[in-house]
């Protein structure tokens, strides 16, 4: 694929297939189009100089535009980096716009059908990590599919679709990635290592009992998590010790001191 095609397509730039970053005229046209339809930094009446892509005054207007929009100096050194920066900027603005709209829409949907799903509205920043618009998870059809996937993966049901999505994606990454699948399909001897690494909670000693199997299990899980945290702490302590050893350590031996006894 030619450079910038994906971003240009994402922005619905009609001339995308023909775009050539080395052609000064096309770059000018793109910038004018971006400002007109996507970025909209200037008021409509102030965009005239930028739109006049064939004029001798364009280079000056272009420079001023880049100044105004805050394009960093080093990215302006070449057309490709400058165009890339502008495209990223435009994509970001576009994403923020759409995000806002969809959030409003989802709030409206939830409000409209008055469902109890209000309290489980997924939080936006968490969703961004999955590139999923919030409205999508509120869609009953999508939730149905998600619940189906979760059931197929034998995950326990939950009312919070975001939590479920997290669990599904963690499980898929962990167990169904190409590497994990290859591992699972390899002969048993070769994969003994992975199987052993999963711990059966039944075999984890707790040292006390609450007489409530579920509570005991939760205590075991908390303990394992705590051990994991302690391990991380100890590892960073060790790293610190090693860096201090860099200053203090000077081990010596002197074989002339040695003497074998009787």
């Amino acid at each position: 694929m030619r450079p910038f095609q994906r971003k240009l397509q994402a922005l619905d730039y009609v001339r995308a297939p023909a775009f050539n970053v080395d052609d000064e005229h096309e770059v000018r046209q793109l910038i004018a189009w971006l400002e007109d339809t996507r970025i909209r930094l200037y008021k409509l009446e102030d965009r005239a100089l930028l739109r006049d892509v064939k004029s001798d005054t364009w280079p000056a207007a272009g420079q001023k535009y880049l100044d105004d929009i805050g394009c960093p100096g080093e990215t302006r050194a070449s057309n490709p980096t400058m165009v890339d920066w502008l495209l990223n900027h435009a994509v970001n603005l576009e994403y923020a716009d759409q995000h806002e709209t969809s959030d409003k829409a989802s709030a409206a949907t939830a409000g409209a059908d008055g469902s109890s799903a209000m309290d489980t509205t997924p939080d936006a920043p968490a969703l961004q990590a999955y590139h999923v618009p919030a409205s999508l998870l509120m869609d009953t059809a999508v939730r149905k599919v998600l619940n189906g996937i979760a059931a197929a993966l034998q995950l326990p049901p939950t009312d919070n679709p975001l939590e479920l999505l997290r669990a599904v994606s963690a499980l898929v990454e962990d167990r169904l990635s190409p590497a994990a699948v290859a591992e699972a399909q390899s002969p048993p001897e070769a994969r003994a290592a992975t199987i052993l690494d999963s711990i059966d909670l039944k075999h984890v000693p707790l040292g006390f009992s609450t007489n409530d199997a579920l509570l005991d299990e939760a205590a075991k899980i908390l303990r394992l998590l705590h051990i994991g945290e302690l391990r991380k702490l100890q590892t960073s302590v060790n790293e610190l010790i090693v860096s201090v050893q860099g200053l203090t350590a000077d081990p010596k031996t002197d074989s002339s001191l040695g003497a074998v006894g009787k």
């Binding site: 031996t253 002197d254 001191l257 003497a259 074998v260 009787k262």
Partner: peptide
């Protein structure tokens, strides 16, 4: 190992 770790009653070590 014998060179590095002296053994026996009355042996002396190589670490100053």
């Amino acid at each position: 190992l014998f060179d590095h770790i002296p053994v026996g009653v009355g042996s002396k070590g190589v670490i100053p």
